[in-house]
Structure formats: structure tokens, C-alpha cells
């Protein structure tokens, strides 16, 4: 018994150590710009010559080339972000039946002389366009049952599996 307690203590200390090691890089909880909520940074482009092109709604060649080199889809057009100076939204073409052919994908910010390129997290679209795309006002419901509906089918199957397992293991004198 004492040995078990000692092992538990060591495990707790190990986990605390791991947490202390990792905690430094965990995004702050509740940070509205955290990657999981808003956008994840991809790279920073040197030189501000792109800004004038961006202002004329043209995607600068080097930026687009760098994105494609990294395996991301090529931006189809850029647009000024509403109400924010020095920030643009990059759009990509997507193939979704019955929906707009373009979707907000990149976020380009001016930072001094550099351009910081990040990518919007998928939740941004859920938050901004969920109601018009699914006609359901509850974000939890359309996230759960539509955008990630297949996961929910899996979760329902998990519950079904649990029920059938209990029948397999416990039920006696049954036809099943």
C-alpha cells in the first residue's frame, strides 16, 4: 500500500514537472486570438512593398508563392478587413455545392515593414456564417450535428455499443 502511494506521489510530481515544462507554450486560456479560437500564424514576409498591392486588392506574387510552397491553397483574392486598418483577408476557392465558391482563409496583417500571414481557424467560419448556412441559431447544434455531424454519429454509436455490450455481458434469458 505504501509502495502504491509512493508511486502515485512520483507520478504526480512527474506530471507537475511535465505541466511546468509545457505550460510556457500553451496558449493563454480565454485569449480571443489564441490559435484554436482565431488564427494560427504561418510566417512573416519581409518588406512592405506588398502593402500597396494588397490595398489594390491584388495578391502579391511572393506571398502566394510562399503559401503554395508550404502546401496551402493559392489565395484567389484579398479584401480589406472591415473596420481594421492594416489588415486584409485572403480568400480561397472551395468546392461546396450550393454555397459561395470563395471562403475567408488567410489573415494578412501589416506589422511595421513586415506582413504577418496567419490562417483563420475553422471555428471562425462556424461563428460568422453558421446561421446563414444552416438556418439554425444554436452554434453548438450546428457544430455538433452539421459541420462535424459524422463525429456525432460516431458518438451515438459509442453509446449504442455500450448498451449492446451490457446486454452481451449481463442479460440472461434473453432472445438477444
Amino acid at each position: 500500500m505504501r509502495g502504491l502511494r509512493l508511486i502515485t506521489l512520483i507520478l504526480i510530481i512527474l506530471l507537475c514537472g511535465l505541466f511546468a515544462y509545457v505550460a510556457e507554450d500553451i496558449p493563454v486560456f480565454g485569449d480571443p486570438d489564441a490559435p484554436a479560437i482565431k488564427s494560427v500564424e504561418l510566417f512573416t514576409m519581409k518588406g512592405a512593398e506588398g502593402v500597396s498591392l494588397l490595398n489594390r486588392q491584388i495578391v502579391p506574387g511572393p506571398l502566394s508563392g510562399e503559401l503554395v510552397r508550404r502546401g496551402f491553397p493559392r489565395p484567389s483574392r484579398v479584401e480589406k478587413a472591415a473596420g481594421r486598418e492594416g489588415e486584409w483577408n485572403g480568400f480561397i476557392k472551395k468546392e461546396e455545392p450550393r454555397y459561395a465558391a470563395e471562403e475567408k482563409y488567410y489573415r494578412i496583417e501589416r506589422e511595421g515593414d513586415d506582413l504577418r500571414v496567419s490562417r483563420y481557424a475553422f471555428v471562425v467560419r462556424w461563428m460568422e456564417k453558421g446561421l446563414e448556412e444552416t438556418a439554425v441559431p444554436n452554434m453548438v447544434t450546428y457544430g455538433l450535428a452539421d459541420y462535424r455531424g459524422y463525429d456525432t454519429l460516431g458518438e451515438t454509436t459509442v453509446i449504442f455499443t455500450a448498451g449492446v455490450s451490457v446486454i452481451l455481458l449481463l442479460r440472461r434469458r434473453s432472445r438477444l
Binding site: E133, T134, A135, V136, T141, A145, D146, T156, I159, F160
Partner: peptide, 18 residues
């Protein structure tokens, strides 16, 4: 879009029954 909403309603009922 209405179809989507209705589809979700039926799916929720399915989940509820199971």
C-alpha cells in the same frame, strides 16, 4: 438551408431515441 436545419432536427431526434 431549411433542409439542413430540418435534417439536423431529425438527426437530433434519432440521437434522442437511441
Amino acid at each position: 438551408e431549411e433542409n439542413r436545419a430540418l435534417g439536423m432536427d431529425f438527426v437530433e431526434m434519432g440521437i434522442g431515441i437511441t
